[in-house]
């Protein structure tokens, strides 16, 4: 039998398997009825004919069960055979196998990479209370050519925003930088972030240690607090060895 007809038969048998099982009850009932009629013709009483018929058939449930076992073992056999067939086919064509495995690997890898970026940036919310209310403000000017027109913010502008804005509950500024961490086994450069008082308030966070200084209303000074960026756990632990207010004044 060629593999084409074999495939076709297999596909058809998936549908037939269901039909076969659903028809089994009716088929067995027919069988027993025929036997009862035969027994009646042989001169038995109806009760006796029925009894003899079911004795001869030998346990209807057992028959159904063993027929269903055939279905089930066929399912397993077919799967095993398909699996073997697949392996053999792949072995016969190693070039195809290698190329398709590579393409699958690349495809899965690329999809996973894109998904984790999208998940991190777009889907997963920022780890702060009410992240949907956080907004990033910035200044741009078309005539400024560096960094795509981005302009930094002066202290005067920040104070103006703070005093005049009606839209935001808290406002803060930050600036990224690096610090030298010494005192451990070897000195290290770690990433840091200079933040103003309002930044932590806006994020709804408390400093891990030390205390945040008074809000800038009472101390009109931008360098009110330094937080070590809590980007990951490792830095967190090392941050404990640092004085959070020990940054450059």
């Amino acid at each position: 039998m060629s593999w084409m007809t074999e495939r076709w038969r297999r596909i058809r048998s998936i549908g037939r398997r269901h039909e076969m099982e659903s028809g089994l009850d009716e088929e067995i009932r027919f069988h027993i009825d025929q036997q009862i009629e035969k027994n009646l013709r042989a001169g038995m009483s109806l009760d006796e004919a029925r009894r003899q018929a079911s004795v001869k058939f030998g346990g209807m449930e057992r028959v159904k069960e063993s027929t269903r076992d055939e279905f089930r073992s066929a399912l397993v056999e077919d799967s095993v055979r398909d699996f073997r067939y697949g392996i053999r086919a792949l072995r016969r064509a190693p070039g195809f196998t290698i190329i398709s495995s590579l393409m699958l690997a690349l495809g899965i890898g690329a999809t996973t990479a894109v998904f984790s970026v999208v998940n991190g940036v777009l889907v997963k919310p920022l780890p702060y209370p009410r992240p949907e209310e956080l907004v990033s403000l910035g200044h741009t000017a078309q005539d400024v050519r560096n960094a795509g027109g981005d302009m930094s913010m002066s202290a005067a502008q920040l104070f103006t925003y703070r005093d005049e804005n009606r839209s935001f509950q808290q406002m803060g500024v930050w600036s990224a930088g690096t610090e030298s961490a010494t005192g451990g086994t070897e000195p290290e450069e770690i990433q840091s972030l200079y933040v103003s008082y309002g930044t932590l308030r806006a994020l709804g966070e408390q400093p891990l240690m030390g205390r945040s200084k008074q809000p800038w209303t009472s101390s009109p000074d931008l360098k009110v607090g330094i937080g070590i960026a809590r980007t990951h756990h490792e830095v967190d632990e090392r941050a404990l060895a640092l004085d959070p207010f020990a940054g450059p004044a």
């Binding site: 039998m1 076969m20 088929e27 069988h31 009825d33 057992r62 028959v63 055939e70 279905f71 066929a74």
Partner: peptide, 28 residues
């Protein structure tokens, strides 16, 4: 008879026999 129906199913799966529903002379 408990062995007949499993055998019929097995043979049909092997493509050696096929089955169809028909009406008997007694209308069953």
């Amino acid at each position: 008879q408990g062995t007949l129906y499993p055998a019929l199913y097995r043979l049909e799966r092997q493509g050696l026999i096929r089955s169809e529903w028909k009406v008997t002379e007694n209308n069953r």
